[in-house]
Amino acid sequence: MHAVPKLAACLLILAPLVPAQDGPGRKIPSVTLAPVPITTITRGKPGTVELQFRVGSGFHINSNTPKSEFLIPTALKLNAPTDIVVGKTTYPPGVDRSFPFAPDEKLSVYGGDFTLGVIVRPLAHVVPGKYALHGQLKYQACDNAACYPPKQLPVDFEVKVEKAKVVVHKKNPAQSPHAHN
């Protein structure tokens, strides 16, 4: 019986978080970033951080390489701390889809889940520890009949920089000059 009031309380608290309707009966498009696990990277060496995004149901965003010069590509921009170099971002290929508003035309889009890979390389002298990287994913979303102004999603994650592991090569005692038979 105690579960009922708890459930009611949870529903009430979560009610405002239900996707908002903006304008005349339309949902606001949402692109979200899944929590990014901390990636451990050896200093002086590049590592890849994977960022998983989700486009809200019923919406699509342009891929990084849309088919028209006028369409706004999805693009990640990151600001790195000093001595952490942000390298190339790998974008997945877009999915070629046609939409009811242009059945004869294919657009290169992302919908549902997609993952970007970011190369991060701490310089060799970086002090080991956690470093935060911040940036934005710029995207422009549409549904089947309308498009929404470009938006920027904050992207924040951490990397853990560690020293290179020292590999100890054990010598074969048989080869030791001090080995005695």
């Binding site: 706004i72 939409f99 508003f101 035309e105 549409c142 309308a146 498009c147 102004p149």
Partner: peptide, 10 residues
């Protein structure tokens, strides 16, 4: 309209 709006283009 806007240049980035495909439905507008239709």
């Amino acid at each position: 309209w806007a240049t980035w709006c495909e439905p507008c283009k239709i």
